[in-house]
Structures are given as structure tokens and as C-alpha cells.
């Protein structure tokens, strides 16, 4: 499409040329990680904050990300309550000098389902403190609106559980969120194949966040490229406009007989 050059994603005043966001977890090593992220063309990458071991080797993942001009989106992973998440957000602002935060609160370790009540509570506080809050949520259209109303810069509904690679199990609800949202919708979690990412973009998602599917691939760099192409393809298809779905056949050739 002619207008693809102008099709930028804007979040809280920051412009992104790529609609594929990537996580930094689960890669076999730092070199593979950075090569995969570069191949993805991602301009926004997530990371976590943890206590660091003063007796052990530290692995500075930030230097190559900053050197490649990637915007950092620290998360609040590990938080089980709003209070935990608020503390984690303040720590990341102090450590990394960014007020962007991926708010995620999941008390359940098996399914890592985000806690909607704690998430809304934390979002309210963090937005009031000037954070750019991108909350990870279940595909709950009501919660998405509530988070938008308290000032979140985007919403990040899940496709399926984190790391499950099960794709858009929440598709029907994602469609409602996308239809109703006045802030960017970033489909996060569970995207296990480029086709899942393409589908999300065809549905009108503003971006997708992918981590596990790239990191655990035997060839993360090639998989990154595949995701980048899928996201771009899905976005072009969305902008071009998909054909209507029909229950019955609609002929693409004249149905008149040869001899009529």
C-alpha cells in the first residue's frame, strides 16, 4: 500500500515504525537474543527487574538494547498484588530512567492469569504518578475500557496463557476490545506462530508482543524475520480491508452455462 510509510503506531506520543514488540526472555544467550531482536525490527522490548546477585556474574542485557536504539518496556513480573506492582514500577523508573511500564500482576503461578482487580488498582495509582502504563490483562472488554478511563496508554490483552503458544484462544473478546478501544491494543501472550500474529493484525490489533515463540525456536533469528513479515502482512491486509465472510458460496466466475 502506498500509505504504509505513514502508518506509524503512536503510544503516549512515541512513534513506532514496527508493530512487532518483543520480549527478551528465554533466549539461549545474549548474542542470539540481540540478533533476533534486530531481525524482528522491533523498536520496543520488554524486560524484568530482579534482585541481582552481588557474588555472581551480572549479564548486562541493557547495553546492546540501548546501542540498537530499542525503547525499553520494563515489566512488573513477579508482582502478586497492586502494592507489589507499584513498588516494582517505581524501582524500574529509578533503575532504568523510564516511566514506561508493562503492568502485569499474576498471583497464580500455573496459568499466570492477570489479576484484574489488582491491575486496575495499580494502574490508577501509576497513571496518577505519571507512568505510561501498558497493562497486561485477560481479554476482558469491560476491564480494557476501565483501564483506558484511568489513563492507560494502551491495553495488552492476552491471546492465551503466557508461553503457551496456543494462539488467539480469546479471539472473540479481542475483537470486542479492538472495536471499543480508544487506545492502542497490543495482543500479548500466547502468540505461538507468525500466523497467530498475522491474524491479530488482520483483526485490527495495533501491535503484538511476542517472546516465547521466537526465543524457543531452533532458529530465533529466522523466526523473528517470519514474525516481522507476518505482522506487516496482517497490518496491510487490515488496512486494505478483508472481504466479507459468507455462509454460502458466491461465485467468482459467471454461472451462466457455456451454451446459454
Amino acid at each position: 500500500m502506498d500509505n504504509m510509510q505513514d502508518d506509524k503506531l503512536l503510544i503516549a506520543g512515541h512513534q513506532f515504525g514496527s508493530r512487532l514488540f518483543t520480549g527478551t526472555g528465554k533466549f539461549s544467550d545474549k548474542t542470539t537474543m540481540i540478533n533476533a531482536l534486530i531481525a524482528s525490527k522491533s523498536q520496543l522490548v520488554t524486560m524484568a527487574l530482579k534482585r541481582i546477585d552481588p557474588s555472581g556474574q551480572t549479564d548486562d542485557i541493557l547495553a546492546p538494547l540501548i546501542a540498537n536504539q530499542m525503547k525499553l518496556l520494563p515489566n512488573t513480573s513477579g508482582a502478586k498484588t497492586a502494592e507489589d506492582a507499584i513498588f516494582a514500577a517505581r524501582l524500574t523508573r529509578e533503575a532504568l530512567g523510564t516511566n514506561w511500564i508493562k503492568l502485569e500482576i499474576h498471583p497464580d503461578q500455573k496459568y499466570l492469569m492477570p489479576d484484574p482487580i489488582e491491575t486496575l488498582k495499580a494502574a490508577q495509582v501509576l497513571c496518577d504518578e505519571g507512568f505510561i502504563v501498558l497493562p497486561y490483562i485477560h481479554a476482558d472488554p469491560v476491564l480494557a475500557k476501565r483501564l483506558e478511563q484511568v489513563g492507560c496508554a494502551a491495553v495488552m490483552p492476552l491471546g492465551s496463557p503466557i508461553g503457551s503458544n496456543k494462539g488467539l484462544a480469546s479471539r472473540d473478546f479481542l475483537e470486542i476490545i479492538i472495536e471499543q478501544a480508544n487506545v492502542p491494543v497490543i495482543v500479548d501472550a500466547g502468540i505461538g506462530a507468525p500466523s497467530h500474529a498475522a491474524l491479530a493484525m488482520e483483526m485490527g490489533a495495533d501491535a503484538v508482543l511476542v517472546n516465547t515463540a521466537i526465543a524457543v525456536s531452533p532458529d530465533p533469528v529466522a523466526m523473528s524475520r517470519a514474525f516481522a513479515m507476518a505482522v506487516e502482512s496482517g497490518r496491510i491486509a487490515y488496512l486494505a480491508g478483508l472481504g466479507q465472510v459468507n455462509q454460502h458460496a458466491i461465485a467468482t466466475s459467471p454461472l451462466t452455462g457455456f451454451l446459454d
Binding site: 520480549g23 527478551t24 526472555g25 528465554k26 533466549f27 537474543m33 520488554t46 524486560m47 524484568a48 527487574l49 530482579k50 534482585r51 541481582i52 552481588p54 551480572t58 549479564d59 542485557i61 541493557l62 525499553l72 520494563p74 515489566n75 513480573s77 524501582l91 533503575a95 532504568l96 503466557i162 508461553g163 508482543l209 517472546n211 516465547t212
Partner: peptide, 10 residues
């Protein structure tokens, strides 16, 4: 004293 730094994560 708790010291926090960035680590890889999604």
C-alpha cells in the same frame, strides 16, 4: 539493602 537490576523477561 536490596539491589535490583534489569534481567531478560517478556
Amino acid at each position: 539493602i536490596n539491589i535490583f537490576g534489569a534481567i531478560a523477561g517478556g
